[in-house]
Design a protein around this nucleic acid. Sequence first.
DNA 1: TGAAATGTTGGGGCG
DNA 2: ACGCCCCAACATTTC
Length: 476
Amino acid sequence: MHSILWFRQDLRVNDNPALNAAIENSNQVVAVYILDEQSKNHRQLGGASKVWLHYTLADLQKSLKEKYQINLVLKIGKSVEVIGKLFAETRAEKLYFNRCYEPYFAANDAIINKKFNTETFNASLLVEPNEVKNGSGEYFKVYTAFYKKCLSSQKLRSPLKAPNQQDKGSKLGVSSLKLEELKLLPTKPDWAAKFKKYWVISENAAHENLEKFFHNGMKNYSDNRNFADNENGTSKLSPYLHFGQISPHQILSATQFFSQVKPDLEKGGEKFINEIYWREFSYNLLGNFNDLPKKNFRPEFNNFPWDNNSELLHKWKWGKTGFPIVDAGMRELYETGYMHNRVRMIVGSFLTKNLLTHWKNGEEWFWDNLFDADLANNSASWQWVAGSGADAAPYFRIFNPVIQGKKFDPSGRYTKKWCPELKDLPIEYLHNPWESPELVIRAAGVELGKNYPKPIVTHEKGREIALKAYALMRKN
DNA sequence: TGAAATGTTGGGGCG
DNA sequence: ACGCCCCAACATTTC
């Protein structure tokens, strides 16, 4: 008996409910990944996401082959059509897959469930969007309340072990595209080559990173996570989580285990789990407010007088704003496909509040450049930082990039790493080079406007303008 | 998961 | 010895 196992954002062998069900309930499994950019409303993958996906598929192909002798079939097309053909070709009895929660995926899944004999599972969330409601039956709009409710009401499953069975592959020789034919890697220019320096992209690497984080970062995580110059302060698991190379259930279970073994890690572990639940909150918002990627969650922001200056946006994207901590972050993003979380908040505040640029522009740049680009997280977080989102800080909380730099990159290591032209500036002026005495800045070999930009706006004036815009919005 | 402006307090210098 | 002033340091309010 044949079954089809459809891989999506659950690209792992362990703790994969659909995989377990398919292998346990059928003799021959046809595993498939469908690159679907044609179904209704599907959002094109960003450039960085494609690169990550390429290596992830390569890794998954290898593990499925080795462990179960299953070939991962690769296809391009509308998922409903590809699946229909597979059913016809293999006479499979059932389609197994793990649910996705992006609104366009969910709508498509509804069609597939109607058309075929399916069994679906939750593999990637601790809480599905309709699982948790507040006292009046509404979905939560405030994080802390959501989190508390989850903790008090949830029964979480333990991570599943990959079934130990051999020779589960289909004997029919279903045709597959070659991985290269998905064309996920850039060719000319090959801007993706550099990423190998920074990442090992595999299911195994996700677990090794988590283990490393337990030993190096989890103690004092509450504080460490904010320091951009602390390389070990965060887990860097977000891309793996997005593609499902590790599941939140695995993370929670491992964190709790570690906290028990090493009680001094308990506090950090709690905070870490709290951050994992921010992802859950984002999915909860997106699942209940499907327009989150496009429309202001707080409609009063529809009146906000954005400036949307394309030249300023361009300088922001390429790390040429003249504010070192902002530029460092934007360059880290482009170079590594990742940005430290604290710095994401700083550059987000800068774009929306100092440059008065609509958050959607930032959302799109992040979508294209982040390995962890994730519809729920990205849109919820951009709306949060812009002030238009759920549980967002009031708009007038405007980050001062100089103060933030001094506070969260006190050694200057982070800024100097990504803005090497500033490496000889003394720390007192690293985050505000335009205030540096002439002698000092010249001795450091920095010439503003020549080898490092002058600030493209003044923060004080920007703040004033932003507050005026905010007041205007409230009046309307 | 702010920053700036404004208000308050208290120690020390000084006449 | 005392009051006055200055001004950090901290607290509160406002945006």
